[in-house]
């Protein structure tokens, strides 16, 4: 299996505080990885490093054959291949849902407007909000907004999708609709790295689960093994609290 994302001895500091300590992680094509761990353990920072929203200070990150560093010229090109869904949705509130979805394809990938709109409508249909296409983000519920954000990311036809706690800001009854959309995406064969506390989702979808604490990867195991037979004490404690 060829690795599409490779992280070797990645270290990162915020000032004096070390957020990431010697992270080693390989993600193969079409693999689904769930990252979990207590808050403040560096999960979000880890996946934000993968599309260089955060810069790592030591180590190597290679995404689809390109190494991320200060010398990386076309960081935009790499980002265009890596979609991301955020905890706070981060839709553009001044644009309609459809415009949110077509903005980047039109201006970054230079897709003709008509084609971009057709493709966007297809993506919106996939997440079942095509009837909301002309509304503005402020008029949608949280779950709808998050699905729109997912559709927006997919409109760039990314090779990799990153999810940064996509359901943490949602009301309980809306979590399911977002998770369903993510499950569908996983079944379609997308490479996914998901930071989440939804263990049910992890059990259903993930190939591997990564447990992080204090900036380190404490445990990394196949999903069944991770839940049935955790090795590390901290993992056990965490699972006992969350399940």
């Amino acid at each position: 299996m060829s690795a599409i994302i490779q992280m070797k001895d990645v270290n990162k500091w915020f000032g004096d505080f070390q957020v990431l300590k010697d992270i080693n992680l390989e993600v193969g094509e079409k693999q689904k990885i769930v990252v979990c761990g207590p808050s403040g353990s560096g999960k979000s920072t880890l996946i934000r490093c993968i599309n260089r929203l955060e810069e790592h200070q030591k180590g190597k990150i290679i995404v689809d054959g390109n190494e991320l560093s200060e010398r990386t010229k076309d960081i935009e090109k790499i980002r265009a291949e890596v979609g991301m869904v955020f905890q706070q949705f981060n839709l553009f509130p001044h644009l309609s849902i459809l415009d949110n979805c077509t903005l980047a394809p039109i201006w970054v990938k230079k897709t003709p407007k008509k084609k971009a709109e057709d493709f966007a409508m297809k993506q919106l249909e996939q997440v079942q909000i095509s009837d909301q296409a002309s509304k503005f983000p402020g008029q949608l519920s949280g779950g709808q907004q998050q699905r729109a954000a997912l559709a927006r990311a997919l409109c760039m036809e990314p090779k990799i999708m990153l999810f940064d706690e996509p359901t943490s800001a949602l009301d309980p009854e809306m979590i399911k609709e977002v998770l369903d959309a993510m499950v569908n995406l996983a079944k379609a064969g997308m490479t996914m790295i998901v930071v989440t506390h939804e263990m049910g989702f992890a059990k259903e979808v993930a190939d591997e689960v990564v447990f992080m604490d204090e900036g380190m990867i404490v445990e990394k195991a196949k999903t069944n093994e991770f839940f049935a037979n955790p090795k590390n004490e901290r993992t056990k404690l965490f699972l006992s609290q969350i399940l």
């Binding site: 979609g83 955020f86 949705f89 553009f92 903005l103 980047a104 760039m156």
Partner: peptide
């Protein structure tokens, strides 16, 4: 909010596109 910058960047927009459209 910082999320707007993050979202624009994560879609592959460069500085000027991000400023102009978002």
């Amino acid at each position: 909010p910082r999320g707007q910058y993050d979202a624009a960047k994560s879609l592959g927009m460069g500085y000027w596109k991000m400023q102009t459209f978002v």
